[in-house]
Design a protein around this nucleic acid. Sequence first.
DNA 1: GGTATTTGACCTAG
DNA 2: CTAGGTCAAATACC
Length: 241
Amino acid sequence: MMEAMRLQQELVMQLRAPVLPLLHNVDHRPAELAVQLFNDVIGCNISVISTLNGCLIRSGAGGSPAIELVDDKSLVRKNNSTNTGQRSEDQGKRNSVGQKRRRNDKRSRSLVTHVPHYDGHEWRKYGQKNINGWQHPRSYYRCTYRSERRCLATKTVQQQEQNDSTGNGTVTEEIAKYSVVYYGDHTCKDHGINTVQPPHQLVNMDVQGAEMVQTTTNIEEIEEDFDLPALLEGFDSSFIN
DNA sequence: GGTATTTGACCTAG
DNA sequence: CTAGGTCAAATACC
Ligand SMILES: [Zn+2]
């Protein structure tokens, strides 16, 4: 059930990957609509997964994510199929009683995905650096609501090196995988305390009154409760390699 | 007017 | 010193 949803999600993503660039090279309205529909399908799917996941957690049958939440020490992936040259950096913790060194608290969760942006949160890029032995730069994002909601969540995205199967040096763009590392937790989304609602009407896709919602909502509006990263992590990692 | 990204400067742990 | 993380001015996009 849950796995079926995740599988569906992955399939939609995989379908989207090759189609999206084609759509962008066309200026037809239908193309834009198709892009929007992709987002809507993904968003709807995420919403269902969120709700479902909520019920599971509630019933104590916690859906075991296929990815480990990784602390700063060692980065252990449950299935370490691909040797993704992951790095987890931990910083000096000079945090004793009198010494309140509040430098970055590096608690990280990492994953590898080919859609590093659909994680259910809004991010603002604030930097990019080339990393010593890596061919692709690392991008630094922080939560959009850092200032107004005191949300200190952060993430980095870096494309993984992988050789194209066609022998071409460069990966064919939309197939590329990205290593995403999350730092900190989101304190935005203020309704966070008693989030879990009974499943009634949680998925507010207006199925009943849906006749006229053409451009519809987009993904950020649909998704609300639960950490999308966790959800996507689980389903993504089940597909790695 | 507003907000996002780009990008070299700047900072700091090691 | 260097490497990597962050800032911020310039720029881009509405
Ligand atoms: Zn946040």
